[in-house]
Design a protein around this nucleic acid. Structure first.
Lengths: 145, 145
DNA sequence: GTCAGTGCAAAGATTTTGCACTTTG
DNA sequence: CAAAGTGCAAAATCTTTGCACTGAC
């Protein structure tokens, strides 16, 4: 468990004020096993006893995303944006079409690929999002029964 | 330019009726250089002089997606779903954060990666979506001026 | 004639915005 | 105190749904 001071500093470094809302949001995202939607962030704040408005959650997530403290992600099959703490560790996702759970995967095979693409297309590549779809082992079992 | 008969057959093969709406939709998607949103499909239908309702567009896109004639895609920075004709050629996308244009890229470096992942995670992988973000050469020039 | 497909209007879901008030630095 | 952050209500945007009508096979 990380100290609140860390979040405190991250905010300061990015020219943002230290409000209990934002610290709690970073804490929630940092300790979430999966990327979560704005409304889920909102619910978890409430569970922690923090009263906040949903529009504030959206606004803050937007700002945190722009400052790169948080990463925004979207998944087909689900018309909403998901957010996660930017751990500065590049990773990807396995999305289970059955139970809709998301698992992060660390290894990324795309670096060489991106270099080749830059040369070929003259794009200046800034990043990528990879989501892999399938069925987790539990959902496979379930469907066999 | 493909004959309408092709779309005709694709629909029939999937147990769908041949309506001018759907044939025109497949034609539009097939000849679009980029994945497009439902509303854009709707607009292009109108331009062709085909009167249709937006909800019908959504419903049909949904059905065509389920039948795998069409592929659904989502891009961060844009809270709507995009659709494209399923050319049965596996590809990926370069998304320009500047002009929001999308370019398809044919080569896919992920096959070996997926096999390794299946073994490691016991997921049954059914596919993936990869979007690479950056700035196209025109937008790079523009920002230097 | 039957069932899939469609139009229309209405509702649902997610996200954004304007404005007045509050809090942080 | 100034600027950033927030709450609230309202709107904007995207998508889905119920029901009655139409068209394909």
């Amino acid at each position: 468990m990380k100290g609140k001071t860390d979040y405190n500093e991250k905010l300061k470094l990015n020219g943002l004020k230290n409000t209990k809302h934002r610290i709690a949001m970073l804490d929630i995202l940092d300790n979430s096993k999966q990327p979560i939607a704005a409304e889920e962030v909102y619910n978890r704040l409430r569970e922690k006893g923090i009263s906040i408005n949903l529009s504030t959650v959206y606004r803050s997530l937007d700002i945190l995303t722009n400052k790169n403290l948080v990463t925004k992600l979207s998944v087909v099959d689900d018309n909403k944006s998901l957010f996660e703490f930017n751990k500065m560790v590049h990773n990807h996702y396995l999305f289970c079409r059955g139970c809709k759970s998301i698992v992060a995967v660390n290894y990324c095979p795309l670096e060489a690929y991106e270099e080749a693409l830059e040369q070929e297309t003259h794009f200046k590549i800034s990043g990528h999002k990879l989501v892999i779809y399938g069925f987790c082992s539990q959902c496979q079992k379930r469907s066999q029964e």
